[in-house]
Each structure stands twice: as C-alpha cells, then as structure tokens.
Amino acid sequence: MTTNATEKGKILTANRLRDGEVVFLTHSGEWSENIDGAVLATEPQAQAALEARGKGDERVNLVTGTYLFDAERRDGHVFASHIKERIRSLGPTVRVDLGKQAEGKGGHFAALQGV
C-alpha cells in the first residue's frame, strides 16, 4: 500500500431501508456500514457509475436516499470532507458511546470533540 498518498473523490452513501443505518457503497457493490470500506471515485465517469448503481439499489429496496459526498483517502483510510458526513460516519459527537464510533465501525479518524 502506498503511504502518504492522498486521493480525492466522491463516495456514494445512503441509508439502509430496513433500519436506516448509514451505509457506503464498496468496490464489490455491497453496502458497508464502515466508511473505510467505501469506494472512492475520482473521475466523473466513475462517480456517475456509482450513482447509477445506487439508484439501482434504491429500486430493489436495499437503500434509500443515495447521494455522493466529497471525501479523500489517506493511507487507506477514508475521510469525509464535511462535518455532516463525518458525524454520519461516526455517530453523534455528544454520545460517543453510541453509533458506529462505539461499534468499531467508525472509520479511522477521531470523533469530533464537543466545543
């Protein structure tokens, strides 16, 4: 694995239909609860492919509300650019005992601190 390499791109996310869990589309086309499993699309064409895949999975009622968001991969770990996506991929910053961050699915960055 390359080190110090930073890739910027977009990730496709959604909520799983049956329980609302935040999920991210992976390379293999599965939905992962962990943002580190997400496929990062750097090219517009690849991003469009992710979106199409997402719409397909909405149609077969796996997920709902798919959309792309900005992220980057550093040292094999994925970092969401916007605070909203960081909170979605971790859980509430005011209850670090809950959500992905508490279940070992919280990606590879620290929880946001309270202010």
């Binding site: 909520n15 329980d19 609302g20 509300g65 859980g91 959500g99």
Partner: peptide, 27 residues
C-alpha cells in the same frame, strides 16, 4: 415498502403521517 410494492416517494408521506422521519443515523 420493505417488499418494494411501495416506492420511497410513495411511502414517505405515509411514514411522515405517522411521525417517522429519516435522520442522520437512523429513522
């Protein structure tokens, strides 16, 4: 909805009439 007979667009107003929202981490 879970079996796909209803689409999200069809189901959303029905769930909202029963107080069910989709938020950041879950419903």
């Amino acid at each position: 909805r879970l079996t796909g007979e209803l689409s999200e667009d069809e189901f959303r107003p029905l769930r909202l009439m029963n107080g069910l929202y989709l938020q950041l981490h879950a419903y």
